[in-house]
């Protein structure tokens, strides 16, 4: 299936946060290939510049925008800059996330809790709020939070702050979807399971990935392209009636009775 044929995003402008790592580059490239103009953000100027460079090398029109997403004033300015540059904002893909330490709850520090909450919950709110203000004017918008299947489960690797904030993000998704549905704006979350991102392949090696894959009903890891294709579809006009959803894309690992508790390993 060719995503660019099915999902026509031409004329749209997308902001992708956390674009530099994990699934970010693939999502940004896929949206660009479907016709969208791409604004990208990552946590450092270097990471942002690097992903812009990669996207341009792949022939995609992309520009980098800097902002600390945990600062609401900076988020407002980020969205303003994107609109100043492109005249509109149609798609927000919020992929930026903070991981937890995996410590047991009674050993999680204030700093860990607050920093994970700041990125996974507060930044998501600031971004959604700023985006909705723009999207409402054009009566069209797509907000897509790239969450994690652990939002529905538990995580040994990331611990309590990560699980709680990812579940919280789904609450924000549900609530906001109702508020903005009448304005042509959809809000969804995608929940990837075990996905073989380049950094995971590099860190884990093929053998460890193969072993984990055996515990997944699909008997393989997902690919970044598969997640990106789902994001692109949710961003398309055709997906206008899907909202308030949290969509697993995990090879059925989350519905195995007594199955693995931590497909978040893909994001280690």
């Amino acid at each position: 299936m060719h995503v660019q044929q099915r999902c026509d995003l031409s004329g749209m402008v997308a902001l992708v946060t956390g674009a530099g790592g994990g699934l970010g580059p693939t999502i940004a490239r896929t949206l660009a290939e479907a016709g969208a103009r791409i604004a990208v953000n990552d946590r450092t100027p270097e990471r942002t510049a690097a992903v812009v460079e990669r996207l341009r090398e792949a022939g995609c029109a992309a520009e980098g925008f800097l902002a600390d997403l945990t600062d609401s004033a900076q988020v407002d300015r980020l969205v303003q800059e994107v609109v100043d540059r492109y005249g509109q904002l149609d798609i927000l893909v919020n992929k930026a996330e903070a991981h937890g330490s995996g410590r047991r709850s009674d050993e999680v520090t204030d700093e860990e809790w607050e920093s994970v909450l700041a990125v996974n919950v507060h930044a998501a709110f600031y971004l959604s709020r700023a985006a909705v203000r723009r999207m409402r004017q054009r009566r069209f918008g797509r907000i897509i939070h790239v969450s994690n299947i652990v939002a529905t489960r538990t995580s040994v690797l990331n611990g309590v702050a990560y699980v709680a904030t990812k579940e919280a993000l789904y609450g924000l998704t549900r609530h906001l979807s109702i508020e903005v549905a009448q304005h042509g704006i959809t809000v969804n979350a995608v929940l990837p399971g075990f996905v073989a991102t380049p950094i995971l392949v590099e860190r884990w090696g093929d053998e460890r990935i193969r072993q984990l894959a055996e515990t997944i009903p699909a008997l393989r890891a997902g690919t970044p392209e598969e997640v990106a294709a789902l994001v692109a579809f949710l961003a398309s006009r055709e997906a206008g009636y899907i909202t308030g959803a949290a969509i697993p894309i995990d090879g059925a690992v989350s519905i195995v009775p007594g199955g693995r508790s931590d497909p978040s390993a893909a994001f280690a």
Binding site: T154, V160, A164, G171, R174, H175, E179
Partner: peptide, 29 residues
Amino acid sequence: GVRTGFVSGAPYTTAKSGLIGLTRQMALE
């Protein structure tokens, strides 16, 4: 925390959803 609030807003729904995740993770641990 499971659906959405009748007389509450985004922060309450968000936080009460998170509370379910918090509960689940602590139950595991």
